[in-house]
Design a protein around this nucleic acid. Structure first.
Lengths: 190, 190
DNA sequence: AAAGTTGTGGAACACTTGTTCAGGTAGTTG
DNA sequence: CAACTACCTGAACAAGTGTTCCACAACTTT
């Protein structure tokens, strides 16, 4: 077995640090605030490091979306896939538009970016596909409506003058998953 | 009555032309593509005209959102407030993510911009408030779920690799407005 | 230990950006 | 028709951008 090159290991770590810094910049200033220099400053690396690791600024954004999409995926699946109660779901949503407001904002900016970059689409909607796969809804229509409403509630929560809290969201979620048996009682293929 | 100053009239017209050009630029290249120069080129006015009419680039974006919000408002109300059938609603949604895809994309970018500019929030969510006011839902919970789902369906339609058509959306809409009597049979206050 | 390879970063370049400003032009008024 | 005013714009500037390039450092291999 060949020894791993210490340089490459360090490189990979720095590479990831740059992506994480990019996400922080987006959280703070939006996609518009992402420049090689601002990312480098945030990551504490030389100005040219982002250019070195990512051929173009676009590549950096793409890498950041891909990475953030994975986290989004986990979060969303935790919300929709757990079979949690309406209150638990409402709590997660409330958290997303309050404590994690900036993060959620960033994720939707990247999300929307996928609307203009076809190559990003699969990553952006991965959580949707995964949700369907995990839950195996018997009533796909009701489930799709549920998933759409989650996106809508989050987006609308971001532009409310005061973000909704758990108690306000709970009845809406409750309404959406009424008759959830319809889609959670997944049929197993034989 | 004093005569209107022809100069001011012309100015107002040009001012609006600049806002319209800005929206076209956003449709084509996104908010990121908006610069004084790109807008000026699109509007066919001198480079400094946008600066002259709008103190800062931000002001221009804000003016554009305010203006586009009015149109969004009309469109959305046509969808949710008309009491149209599920098919009619589905048709409107399908149109938004197909023929009018770029326009819808632009509107959501501006929408999200409101997430970072508190002063834009009222304009961005105006259609939501208006919808509630017009429909006077007896079941506000069901109605909010419906409104959220519309946003979600549009956003998810924008990142689908092939945008959904009328026939795919119809059952989902149908599901969402089942028991619509609950929220359309508005109680009149005496 | 020397040679070779890969990663790294500061200086610099060409370019675009937002914004300023003084001069010019069109419209109104006396 | 002259004086005035308000609107408009082209040239110019400072600041910041993405990206390139080459010297050099870190590491591996011989």
């Amino acid at each position: 077995m060949q020894k791993v090159d210490g340089r490459k290991a360090r490189g990979e770590k720095k590479r990831r640090a740059i992506v994480e810094a990019t996400l922080r910049v987006i959280e703070r200033d939006g996609v518009a605030g992402v420049t090689h220099r601002s990312v480098a400053r945030e990551a504490g690396v030389p100005t040219t490091a982002p250019t070195y690791y990512f051929a173009t600024l676009d590549d950096l954004l793409i890498a950041t979306l891909l990475w953030s999409a994975e986290e989004l995926c986990d979060d969303m699946l935790k919300i929709v896939g757990s079979g949690g109660s309406a209150r638990e779901i409402a709590r997660s949503l409330a958290k997303a538009v309050n404590e994690n407001r900036c993060r959620t904002l960033a994720e939707y900016e990247l999300y929307l970016l996928a609307g203009r970059r076809p190559e990003l689409k699969p990553a952006a909607r991965r959580w949707l596909d995964l949700a369907v796969e995990v839950v195996r809804p018997a009533d796909p229509v009701a489930f799709r409506a549920f998933l759409a409403a989650i996106d809508g509630l989050l987006m609308q929560g971001l532009i409310a003058d005061v973000a909704p809290n758990e108690d306000e969201l709970e009845p809406i979620v409750s309404f959406l998953i009424r008759g959830r048996d319809d889609f959670t009682a997944a049929p197993r293929e034989e």
